[in-house]
Simulated scan of single mutants.
Amino acid sequence: MGLPLRDHQHHTYSEYLTWPDDVRYELIDGQAVMMAPAPNLDHQDIVGELFYQIRQQLEGKPCRPFIAPVDVRLPRGDEANEDIDTVVQPDVIIVCDPGKLDRRGVRGAPDWVAEVLSPSTAAHDQVVKRRIYERARVPEYWLVHPNDRTLTIYTLRDGAYGRPDIFELKETTRLQTMPELEIAWDALVERLPKQEF
């Protein structure tokens, strides 16, 4: 989702906490990755709408949605927080286990992750973060493609993401691992700029 610093040092969460707030980073396997500049309004509109719809449907239920920026620490095992070397900031997440939440964010895999792609983040989200979320055992990972109006869904089966399901952004799409939740697309897509061919 950005540009590696290429300092070839292995960083941990304890160092990450000391970095300046005016530049956002993710930490992927110990490598600092600078986040892209502020995304465009279409991206923000989609992220906001996903969060809004999910939040309404989860009202009064134990699962909670969060919107970026929120640090999600993904330990490989039982290492202490300060030793974790992967910290990401997904666009929208759902966390159902309150034991994963603390004042600094989330420790452990969210139950659902959605990333909205932009030209500067597409490769990172589709390749690097997909691998990270699979390793962390995130049950369901959505990639929203605003330009081609499609949605790619990876679902964890037997510990791995297999072939993804691909849908058009129209009508409604249910979460595969939480089918009581769904996203309605039509009004949102209508607000997006018309596609040019």
Rank of each mutant, 00 (worst) to 15 (best):
residue 38 A to C: 05
residue 57 Q to T: 11
residue 50 L to M: 12
residue 35 M to C: 09
residue 55 R to A: 05
residue 75 P to L: 03
residue 59 E to M: 09
residue 54 I to M: 09
residue 44 Q to R: 13
residue 61 K to N: 10
residue 51 F to M: 00
residue 43 H to L: 13
residue 78 D to F: 04
residue 38 A to I: 11
residue 60 G to W: 10
residue 64 R to N: 04
residue 43 H to K: 12
residue 31 Q to W: 07
residue 78 D to V: 08
residue 73 R to V: 05
residue 28 I to V: 15
residue 43 H to G: 10
residue 30 G to K: 10
residue 37 P to Y: 08
residue 57 Q to W: 10
residue 49 E to C: 08
residue 68 A to H: 02
residue 33 V to L: 01
residue 51 F to H: 06
residue 63 C to L: 06
residue 65 P to S: 15
residue 52 Y to M: 13
residue 35 M to F: 02
residue 26 E to D: 00
residue 52 Y to L: 13
residue 41 L to G: 05
residue 29 D to V: 01
residue 31 Q to T: 11
residue 51 F to Y: 11
residue 59 E to A: 12
residue 23 V to A: 02
residue 45 D to A: 14
residue 54 I to L: 15
residue 39 P to L: 03
residue 55 R to K: 14
residue 62 P to G: 03
residue 38 A to N: 12
residue 25 Y to M: 00
residue 29 D to A: 07
residue 22 D to S: 14
residue 26 E to Q: 00
residue 69 P to C: 02
residue 57 Q to G: 08
residue 77 G to F: 04
residue 32 A to V: 15
residue 54 I to C: 05
residue 51 F to A: 02
residue 28 I to L: 08
residue 70 V to M: 07
residue 56 Q to F: 09
residue 22 D to V: 10
residue 46 I to W: 06
residue 66 F to H: 03
residue 59 E to F: 11
residue 35 M to Y: 05
residue 56 Q to L: 15
residue 52 Y to V: 12
residue 37 P to V: 08
residue 63 C to M: 04
residue 55 R to D: 06
residue 27 L to Q: 03
residue 76 R to Y: 13
residue 45 D to F: 12
residue 27 L to K: 06
residue 39 P to T: 06
residue 44 Q to W: 07
residue 56 Q to T: 14
residue 68 A to K: 00
residue 48 G to C: 07
residue 46 I to C: 04
residue 32 A to F: 13
residue 47 V to S: 14
residue 33 V to K: 01
residue 45 D to S: 13
residue 64 R to T: 10
residue 51 F to T: 01
residue 73 R to F: 01
residue 50 L to G: 06
residue 43 H to Q: 08
residue 64 R to H: 09
residue 61 K to L: 15
residue 69 P to K: 01
residue 42 D to E: 14
residue 67 I to T: 13
residue 41 L to W: 10
residue 36 A to F: 03
residue 63 C to I: 04
residue 69 P to Q: 04
residue 55 R to Q: 07
residue 24 R to S: 04
residue 63 C to Y: 03
residue 66 F to C: 01
residue 73 R to C: 06
residue 47 V to N: 12
residue 39 P to E: 02
residue 72 V to H: 06
residue 39 P to M: 01
residue 61 K to M: 15
residue 27 L to D: 01
residue 63 C to R: 03
residue 62 P to F: 13
residue 25 Y to N: 00
residue 66 F to T: 00
residue 42 D to S: 15
residue 76 R to P: 01
residue 38 A to E: 10
residue 58 L to A: 09
residue 54 I to R: 06
residue 72 V to G: 02
residue 41 L to T: 12
residue 50 L to I: 14
residue 73 R to I: 08
